[in-house]
Amino acid sequence: MDETLIRRIQDNPKFTELVRKKTSLGWLLSIVMLAIYYGFILVIAFSPTTLGTPLFAGSVTTIGIPAGVVIIVSAFVITGIYVRRANTEFDQLNAELVKEVHS
């Protein structure tokens, strides 16, 4: 990449927009995932009985079971949200940017 191309990309508002959108969504979703996981671990470490509460009166199934499954599903869904936005909106923006700076 030569100096002029670098300058053109850097000065293009679409580049700023792309960087802002991509990084903020990436960090936001990372924090959500970390919060869910470490929240779960902290509940286990400091209040293990919470997850052992029966799901409904008389059941052996505890709250912990659906909670665990929900975390697994949430990892998949959160990844899906990012990939969907990145592969449509961000890539579109990226394609426009590449076209502009090369023209």
């Binding site: 969504l25 995932m33 990892a75």
Partner: peptide
Amino acid sequence: IGFLVGWPIITF
């Protein structure tokens, strides 16, 4: 769950 949750972070 511990095994799985690294993957979203890798994606992002």
